[in-house]
């Protein structure tokens, strides 16, 4: 375990908490894509299936449970909470999940480490995580005006990915047999998707004004 990896996990958790607190405090989920949240829950559930039989460390197990619980809470708020669900931007959040789920499932069946149910679900979760932010980015693009907390959420998620890349570089340099092409390539794609958003986020931050995406 290195400092990059720990920072990444904490940033990931922070991003989810920022979103959860925003929803809880403002009783509004305006600007948040339910599709992306549901895809993330699917990512966590398919990746952390081994929670029940593969114990690696308390650190890992606690994070797994917390990720599943907090993203379930976000979805619960958006779908079930009486006040919050009325603020959900259903008309703009129209991205089809099947466009992401089907290609990821097919790719996981073809390109995987070993042909077993657990391995294929795990690989599927790696591919799906790479693209799960797309409905959220499309929603931000459509609504243009991004409120601070939603902007911070996407920014923290991007930082989390960037720190995972640093972690891989560090591990590759220090651990003799460390190699994971599927994870690295997916991680690079995922981080790449944030770059455009990062550019506008940092510009808005430098000029200390509200984040506005171009048409």
């Amino acid at each position: 375990m290195n400092i990059f990896r720990v920072s990444a996990d904490i940033l990931h958790l922070l991003s989810i908490l920022v979103l959860l607190l925003k929803i809880h405090a403002t009783k509004s989920c305006a600007g948040i894509s339910l599709k992306t949240q549901e895809l993330y829950l699917a990512v966590f559930v398919t990746r952390y299936l081994d929670l029940f039989w593969n114990f690696h460390s308390l650190y890992n197990s606690v994070f797994k449970v917390v990720y599943i619980a907090t993203s379930s809470m976000i979805i619960w708020y958006m779908k079930r909470h009486r006040g919050v669900k009325q603020t959900y931007d259903k008309d703009h959040d129209t991205f089809r999940y099947l466009f992401l789920i089907v290609p990821c499932a097919v790719l996981a069946l073809i390109v995987n480490g070993r042909f077993s149910l657990f391995e294929i679900l795990w690989t599927f979760s790696i591919y799906l995580e790479a693209v799960a932010i797309l409905p959220q980015l499309v929603l931000l693009q459509r609504t243009k005006n991004v409120d601070n907390l939603t902007g911070n959420y996407v920014f923290l998620l991007g930082l989390y990915r960037a720190f995972y890349i640093l972690n891989w570089i560090y591990r590759y340099a220090t651990e003799p047999h460390y190699s994971a092409w599927i994870v690295w390539l997916s991680g690079l794609v995922q981080t790449g998707l944030y770059l455009d958003f990062f550019y506008y986020y940092l510009q808005a931050w430098k000029q200390s004004k509200k984040l506005q995406l171009p048409s």
Binding site: R5, D50, H56, N60, Y164
Partner: peptide
């Protein structure tokens, strides 16, 4: 074994 190392990440 290579795959197992990766699964220690979240």
């Amino acid at each position: 074994a290579a795959g197992e190392e990766v699964k220690d990440e979240l």
